[in-house]
């Protein structure tokens, strides 16, 4: 596909993601995933999972890191060189930050009116719970794949495990162990990722 066209698509997609991210980094990951993996098919679920792991371990906001990495990978997957990859990173990072920029600057001027206004609170009361569902959806999509043979809901669904992320029993045990370690032992995400990497090396 035409490189300029992909760059334009990247800009549009990441601008929308930036505009609709409420609830911080993880909500942003979920939006990036549904656009980049599900809607556009620019990369596989496992490639995205790897990017999330690296974004978590690299300093900086996780959502922005993920956008930067995705911009590069999308261009590379399209068969372009390093330079276009860098341009892809730049485009995705700029596009995802631009809506915040515009809206925060507007809020600075109008914040005293917006803060505590019933309309704003009314809208947020409907948006906040959706963020919880959205992040849950991100976890589900990385583990379970649903495909419909026609229009969703009006045709037969086929459920399958995302094999790249969960190839065997060992990976489900790792998922369970990570959930328990995070919940009950409050182990930090980075320590969990490092432990997962070491266990992966030893187990496989």
């Amino acid at each position: 596909m035409n490189e300029t066209l992909i760059l334009l698509q990247l800009f549009g997609v990441f601008f929308l993601i930036g505009m609709f991210t409420f609830g911080g980094g993880y909500a942003m990951l979920s939006l990036i995933q549904t656009q980049v993996v599900v809607a556009h098919g620019w990369m596989s679920e496992s490639a995205f999972t790897d990017i999330v792991a690296i974004s978590q371990m690299t300093p900086g906001p996780i959502g922005i890191n993920c956008a930067t990495f995705c911009g590069y990978t999308v261009m590379q997957e399209a068969g372009t060189g390093h330079l276009m990859g860098i341009l892809g990173s730049f485009t995705a990072t700029l596009a995802i930050s631009l809506p915040s920029f515009i809206i925060v600057l507007l809020l600075v001027k109008f914040y005293t009116h917006v803060k505590g206004s019933p309309l704003f609170e009314g809208v947020m009361a409907w948006i906040r719970p959706a963020v919880v569902g959205l992040i849950a959806a991100a976890a589900v999509i990385l583990a379970l794949n649903v495909s419909w043979d026609g229009t969703p809901l009006f045709s037969h669904p086929a459920f399958s495990i995302v094999r790249d992320n969960f190839p065997d029993l060992r990976s489900w045990l790792l998922l369970g162990a990570a959930l328990l370690a995070s919940f009950f032992l409050k182990i930090k995400p980075i320590a969990l990722i490092v432990a997962g990497g070491i266990l992966g090396f030893l187990l496989y």
């Binding site: 978590q56 992040i135 790792l174 998922l175 969990l192 990722i193 997962g196 266990l199 992966g200 496989y204």
Partner: peptide, 15 residues
Amino acid sequence: RVFKGIRPVVVALIA
């Protein structure tokens, strides 16, 4: 191999 171990952990971290 390393990322095979990391991927399920990432799913847990999102959940």
